[in-house]
Design a protein around this nucleic acid. Structure first.
Lengths: 262, 262
DNA sequence: TATTGAATTGCGTAATGCGCAAATAGATTA
DNA sequence: TAATCTATTTGCGCATTACGCAATTCAATA
């Protein structure tokens, strides 16, 4: 092979490729033709065909025989559940999320950072405004979500992190200006919580606070979210911020953080 | 290689092995040492080490550097979410599950068959008695859950299916006698719904009905579940059965089943 | 510090998975 | 209905890749 895979040493090639194929499936494009995969991955059709066949046999991928489209299989759902249930943070935070929803009737969410994004480890839907899809596992940008801003603000190097990230405008309220975002992150650090109003999706808002692990490092974020009409910012900002912080701190303690904060 | 992998032709060996390794992680044993994996999979330690390293690099597996234990990684959670959100049945059923929980205050669950088990595609927790773990993706036996009994009862060949399955007693109420189980399945077919009382877990019960796809084939099951004190069988059996069947039928219609049932 | 046990890396081999090209299946149009 | 075109899957031989062995490193325990 002339063009190297730009892979680190000692990685198993076919496994790298197969798992790469799995990662081609996204919320936006959850069903793919074999040819699409070959294009995306820069592999030969024959190779893709064999890898897909292997994964179908093992239940990691499904083939719709009618349309010929491939999608993620049952085994992925099962493993996702196992991974989720094994999460310590999730386990400790979940009761608190239920409690939050019960007290306020707002959606309660827990997310952690993953590279230049974040993804949800738990969420409890608001009774009034349940979403009709799972957030679980969903990756969202850092710069335009409440939890994301919290995680970014307290990162080791927020500025250099930010440089890696392209600031896409999802709505007219998305902060796409780096200077403005930096200022916002400073405000998040100062206040101890983040607010997000219609920066990712029209009509929705959230308010988020950091969760710390034993070492004091921020390991996750907690947020309350819902339609604007429920969150009602800025009137309720103080009230809601107080609650999220209180509960986030409680989770931090459960994780072993000795609350003697600075 | 002397001992064949007993694999069908044209499967990529290293991928088969890598995905096999992923499937070693279960709810019961969510964290494994490299050596354990080697034992379970009958592979050499060096091979396992390299496959695990590959999967760690790609985010499918995590290694706890402190304990040396491996567990499923973030990428699995993300893919699980994508797979879940892509499920047509889930999408159509979820609003109905919320509706059920709202009306009755009981947990509402949707599950499909997978081999000789079933797994959950959706669930809405009861406000009163939320579970503190996700059912999503969890595999449960067919013969001692409400939905499972529904799926088994209406399988093409329930009897031969049953022969494959070992009947383990989870509680003293689990049906471990094949004749008794067959009779129970006949009753499920006759009544059009299944009841399960403490057959899988002490103190819990559920009542389930089948969901049919366009072709009339049963593609999933719907259940109401909760602690015995909420379900209160047999007094509420008629009431709850009526509701599950009604809602299951509604979901069937959404799936394209033309309700002219036999 | 010595000793055990597990996990990882080096290395040569041959089995494995790859790409090419042919064949098949499926879709679209004449 | 037949014919053409596209997309996916199989056959095959070569070379790469990934395998197992063995040495090494690392960690835990005595």
């Amino acid at each position: 092979m002339s063009k190297s895979e730009s892979a680190s040493p000692a990685l198993t090639q076919s496994v790298t490729r197969a798992l790469g194929i799995l990662s081609c499936f996204t919320d936006e494009r959850p069903e793919l033709r074999a040819g699409d995969v070959a294009k995306i991955m820069n592999l030969t059709p024959s190779n893709v065909s064999r890898l897909l066949t292997t994964m179908v046999t093992l239940g990691y991928v499904e083939k719709d025989e009618l349309s010929g489209l491939y999608r993620l299989g049952d085994q992925i759902i099962t493993l996702g559940g196992i991974a989720l249930n094994n999460s310590e943070i999730r386990k400790l935070a979940l009761p608190e999320l239920y409690d939050l929803e019960g007290r306020l009737g707002l959606g309660a969410n827990l997310a952690v950072r993953k590279g230049s994004s974040m993804f949800y480890l738990a969420h409890v839907d608001s009774r009034h405004a349940p979403r009709m899809y799972t957030l679980l596992g969903r990756t969202n940008p850092l710069y335009c979500t409440g939890i994301g801003k919290v995680l970014l603000a307290h990162a080791k190097e927020p500025e250099s992190d930010m440089k890696q990230i392209e600031l896409i405008g999802y709505t007219e309220h998305t902060l796409t200006d780096r200077a403005a975002l930096l200022e916002e992150l400073a405000a998040v650090r100062r206040r101890g919580y983040a607010v997000e109003v219609e920066e990712l999706a029209r009509g929705r808002a959230c308010i988020a606070a950091p969760i710390r692990g034993r070492s004091g490092k921020i390991v996750a974020g907690l947020s309350l979210s819902g339609p604007l009409s429920d969150i009602r910012l800025p009137e309720r900002e103080g009230e809601l911020a107080g609650v999220v912080i209180e509960v986030a701190d409680r989770i931090s303690v459960k994780l072993g953080f000795l609350s003697a904060q600075a």
